[in-house]
C-alpha cells in the first residue's frame, strides 16, 4: 500500500520509526541530489543528507502542516548546507571547480572521444560558471531546474516573495549563460 507523506508522518509521530524510514527512503535521493549540487562533493552531500533527516526526525512534532513536509525538508537541507558552507567556506568553490574525474557530479556523454572531450569541457565550464553564481541565484536554479519545484514552493522554502524567486532565476540563467560563454 502506497501511503501518503501525511499518513506516514502521523504514524511516525505516534512513534512508528519505520514510517519515518519509509519517508526517508522516499525523499533521500532528491535531497541528496539537491545537496550534492549545492556543495559539489559526494561525501559532504551524504553527511548533509543524513543530518537533514536526523534533524527532521528530531523536530517532527514542530511541523505544523504535514502537507508541506517536502518543503520543510528542503528548508532543513538548505539550512544545513548554508551552515556547513559558513563553517567551511572553501568547500563549495573548490568542489564545484574541481575537474577531478572521480567526482560524482558528472555529465552524461556519448561514447565518441571527440564528443567526450567536448562534453567534459562543457561540464567543466558549467561547474565553474555555476560555482561563480551568487548563492541565492544558485539555490533557486537548483530547486527549479533539478528538483522540479514550483516557483511558489521555492518562495515558501526560501521565505522570499514569488517575484524575487523569478527575478533571481532569470538573472541566474542569464549570468550563467554569460559566464559559460566566457569560459568555453
Amino acid at each position: 500500500m502506497n501511503r501518503s507523506d501525511e499518513q506516514l508522518l502521523a504514524l511516525a509521530l505516534d512513534g512508528d520509526g519505520a514510517c519515518f524510514g519509509e519517508l526517508t527512503q522516499r525523499w533521500q535521493r532528491r535531497i541528496f541530489a539537491f545537496v550534492c549540487r549545492y556543495v559539489g562533493n559526494v561525501e559532504e552531500a551524504r553527511d548533509l543528507t543524513q543530518d537533514t533527516f536526523t534533524k527532521a526526525y528530531q523536530n517532527l512534532d514542530r511541523l505544523t502542516d504535514p502537507s508541506r513536509f517536502s518543503s520543510w525538508l528542503y528548508k532543513i537541507a538548505l539550512n544545513e548546507c548554508r551552515m556547513r558552507f559558513r563553517r567551511h567556506r572553501h568547500i563549495n568553490q573548490v568542489a564545484l571547480e574541481d575537474t577531478n574525474e572521480s567526482e560524482a557530479i558528472e555529465i552524461v556523454a556519448d561514447s565518441s572521444p571527440e564528443r567526450d572531450l567536448a562534453e567534459k569541457e562543457r561540464a567543466s565550464a558549467l561547474r565553474a560558471a555555476f560555482g561563480a553564481l551568487p548563492e541565492e541565484q544558485r539555490v533557486v536554479i537548483l530547486m527549479k531546474e533539478y528538483q522540479d519545484l514550483k516557483f511558489h514552493e521555492i518562495s515558501e522554502i526560501m521565505n522570499i516573495p514569488l517575484s524575487t524567486v523569478k527575478s533571481r532565476m532569470y538573472l541566474g540563467l542569464k549570468t550563467l549563460k554569460r559566464l559559460m560563454e566566457r569560459r568555453i
Binding site: Q28, F32, R37, R46, Q58, I107, L176
Partner: peptide
C-alpha cells in the same frame, strides 16, 4: 541555458548511508 543545465546529472544512487530511525521509538 536550460539545455546545458539539464546535462548535469548527479549519481543519486550514492545517497545511501542515511540511517533509518530505530523502529518503535517515538520521535
Amino acid at each position: 541555458t536550460r539545455e546545458v543545465l539539464q546535462s548535469w546529472h548527479v549519481e543519486d544512487s550514492q545517497a545511501t548511508a542515511v540511517p533509518e530511525p530505530v523502529p518503535g521509538r517515538s520521535a
